[in-house]
Write a protein that binds this DNA or RNA. Structure first.
Lengths: 331, 331
DNA sequence: TCAAGGTGCTAATACGAATTATCGAGCGGC
DNA sequence: GCCGCTCGATAATTCGTATTAGCACCTTGA
């Protein structure tokens, strides 16, 4: 149309005008005019092929990204992820094609599409250790949302600082006068549980008090409450929000006063659907912030030295709540 | 690695085994094994450039996909979209990189990345008419979730059958004895509003009753309620769920009985956050189903003749609710 | 008049896969 | 020994853009 080569069009299109490349203003104008009248747009696909990267960030979750349950675990993370991706001009690829095996999606399989994206954000309460190891050893660019233990090497992550947040909650209970505290929950398994337990132990050790642990697996709320009272516990530090709700409700049904007779401290927001009007003392997990930062970290990883393994802990926000009170003095 | 050419790998990768192409089973196995161990994946971009498809479906929304508000408008659609994509083995590309202009994202701009995906699902209360026209005229494969008027040609869509659902609701009110019905809302603008209004008019015309229209723009719930009562309306057909909630609450505060003194019929689920314990009579929009079907239609469009313009209306599910009662006989 | 240096543009190639025409090997049959 | 045939695999080309080396032309200065 303008009697000019494809290369020239490309140069004009990208506004190149540095030392090595020069286009006569008159030619540039002619090309621009042609572009305007035809409405020509460079094919994004070819563009990405030549540029060697996509500006696509993968999002892998072990469960559906859009869950049906109301107490939506992933949603806040995704809000942050989307916000940051939008700001950076990246698109998000939801890796929904991963086939389900044993109730969970798998990253690696015959038709692994992870590499569709420049890098990947991994979301999930616990990640498959073998898959994580493989990601690390293969040097795939990814970031885990949530701290992870080493898996064949350090894992890049953006996690919540559970030890610090849990310790802070425990210290508040100690300051209120509690001496008999118990940790309700697994306290091990996923890193997020182990981290809470570490914070719990650390704060009690520091104060010279005995940390007690009440595993919740296979025990009904009634059994748990009985055990708590039998042990003379005055403040229960609850790993799972939903467990806290169940115990509080049961306690009130039995005529106990929360927090008068028993203080309950929740270590984070609900992960399972749980509706209640109880305003728990504890902390809030900065999920949106974590999502945001994970994208930030991932893009940093892609642009900068891929050798560095970024690991960030984001502080949790304390919640005053109404389930902590000084223990009653036993007569 | 396998001492085999790139072409062979491509053939194996795509499982080609038709008349013109033959691969020895032994070679195929060797290549497949190498693919498995290395976790090799064909670059989707190159693939799309060469083959014109990459099993990626785009999802474009005019607002963030993961909204912060609780009354989440897109969520149910996305659940359906994800389910269907998962079943079909497609990945979803959330086009978050679209730059925001005037408070909304735009599809077309300098670096339009829509074409990275094989096709695209468009989500939004109302779509930009010019962009829609351009999509249609350029023959881009896409499906709108929600019925759309022609825009330079018929628009492929999967919409909710608002006219039928609205007419059914109105007929129920008529059957209950109501004669003075009013439509509360815009009744025009977005197709979804116009469609409801059409159903409303049709059912009343059919019964020989006068359709009344009460526009809601810039009027407070108090003004609306006053207008309803002044006009002797006994059944209000409400376009926006939230408006229904506001009016019902106000009416109850004033000592009116809902539905004794005034029946309220809601034309769909909440689109704006609205919490209430009122169980509205009306219908439910089959959002998840619409999401699912939109993906189904889109893939059909991609595989089959792209000349056909699929247009589907999904029926809404009636909700009995508790806000419809026979009108009081005026003394 | 010719080398040196600057200017404006293009030819060629890369990007990574899909596709197709073609080629070589092995095997009968006459 | 030659032709025809099938089977397997590959070289070469394509998709549309970005990039870079280098060519042709012009100006300047001695």
């Amino acid at each position: 149309m303008t009697g000019v080569s494809q290369a020239t069009v490309s140069l004009v299109l990208n506004g190149r005008d540095d030392g090595n490349v020069r286009i006569a203003p008159e030619t540039r104008e002619r090309v621009l005019h042609a572009i305007r009248t035809t409405g020509y747009v460079a094919d994004p696909v070819a563009r990405r092929l030549a540029a060697r990267h996509n500006r696509i960030l993968g999002v892998f979750t072990y469960e559906p990204v859009f869950p049906t349950g109301t107490g939506d675990f992933y949603h806040p993370f995704l809000v942050g992820i989307e916000e940051c991706a939008e700001r950076l001009g990246c698109d998000l690829l939801l890796l929904t094609s991963a086939p389900v095996a044993g109730g969970r999606r798998r990253i690696f399989h015959d038709d692994n599409r992870l590499r569709l994206a420049d890098g990947c954000v991994l979301l999930g309460r616990s990640l498959d250790h073998d898959e994580l190891t493989r990601l690390v050893t293969e040097g795939q660019p990814f970031v885990s949302v949530g701290r992870r233990d080493d898996a064949g090497g350090p894992v890049p992550y953006v996690g919540a600082d559970y030890p610090t947040a849990t310790a802070a909650v425990v210290r508040r209970a100690l300051a209120a006068g509690h001496t008999a505290l118990a940790y309700l929950g697994q306290g091990s398994g996923p890193e997020s549980h182990a981290d809470r337990m570490r914070g719990f132990r650390a704060a009690l050790d520091e104060a010279g008090r005995t940390p007690r642990h009440l595993p919740t697996t296979d025990r009904s709320p009634a059994e748990l409450l009985d055990a708590l009272l039998a042990a003379g516990v005055t403040a229960a530090v609850v790993e799972e929000y939903a467990d806290g709700v169940a115990i509080a409700q049961l306690a009130r049904e039995r005529g106990l006063d929360i927090p008068g007779d028993l203080s309950i401290l929740a270590l984070g927001d609900p992960t399972r659907p749980a509706s209640t009007d109880i305003d728990f003392t504890g902390f809030r997990i900065p999920r949106r912030e974590m999502g945001w930062q994970s994208v930030e970290v991932l893009t940093g990883l892609l642009e900068a030295d891929p050798e560095t393994v970024p690991q960030r802990l984001v502080p949790c926000q304390p919640v005053d709540g109404a389930t902590l009170a000084p223990p009653k003095v036993t007569p």
